[in-house]
């Protein structure tokens, strides 16, 4: 489903210039009611259930309730995302609980270095790109006549 907001936990991200859920939603669904300082999903039927808002919410005030037209009630998938991994708690309709933890990145947040440590040996006129050929692992870019072109 659509994401929803627990009013007891939502504080309207009062310390920030915009709420985390508004900043994150790829579909511009989250809005903040400035009178109540509570956020809500303004268009639940356009929600992709990507959980970008849920993962970003500082006080963990958000969750998703499965789409009402085909998901039976009573289950949940709750993420807890840290800087290098994500933990999921899956609760079944039956009450069964499963928990999984997956890595999400191998570098420090914010530190992705565009060149990846590779030099570029290319000119504007050729078809070799930034960081190439080093980043391809080949001496030169694959082209007709090279052994990587065809056997």
């Amino acid at each position: 489903m659509p994401s929803f907001v627990n009013p007891e936990k939502c504080d309207g991200c009062k310390a920030l210039d915009k709420t985390a859920c508004q900043y994150s939603c790829p579909n511009d669904l989250m809005v903040l009611n400035k009178d109540t300082m509570k956020a809500h999903n303004q268009e639940p039927d356009q929600c992709w259930e990507c959980m970008c808002c849920v993962k970003a919410c500082p006080p963990q005030a958000m969750d998703v309730r499965g789409y009402a037209d085909f998901v039976p009630m009573g289950a949940s998938c709750v993420p807890l995302r840290s800087s290098d991994s994500i933990m999921w708690t899956i609760t079944f309709r039956s009450g069964q609980v499963k928990r999984f933890k997956f890595p999400i990145r191998t570098t420090v947040e914010g530190k992705a270095e565009p060149a990846g440590g590779w030099d570029t040996k290319a000119n504007l006129d050729d078809f070799t790109l930034f960081t190439e050929p080093a980043s391809t692992g080949l001496e030169a870019i694959c082209a007709p006549g090279t052994k990587t072109w065809k056997k």
């Binding site: 489903m1 659509p2 579909n27 639940p44 039927d45 356009q46 929600c47 992709w48 259930e49 789409y67 009402a68 037209d69 085909f70 998901v71």
Partner: peptide
């Protein structure tokens, strides 16, 4: 889908 699930 119909209704809420249209976004899925």
């Amino acid at each position: 889908s119909t209704g809420e699930g249209a976004g899925r």
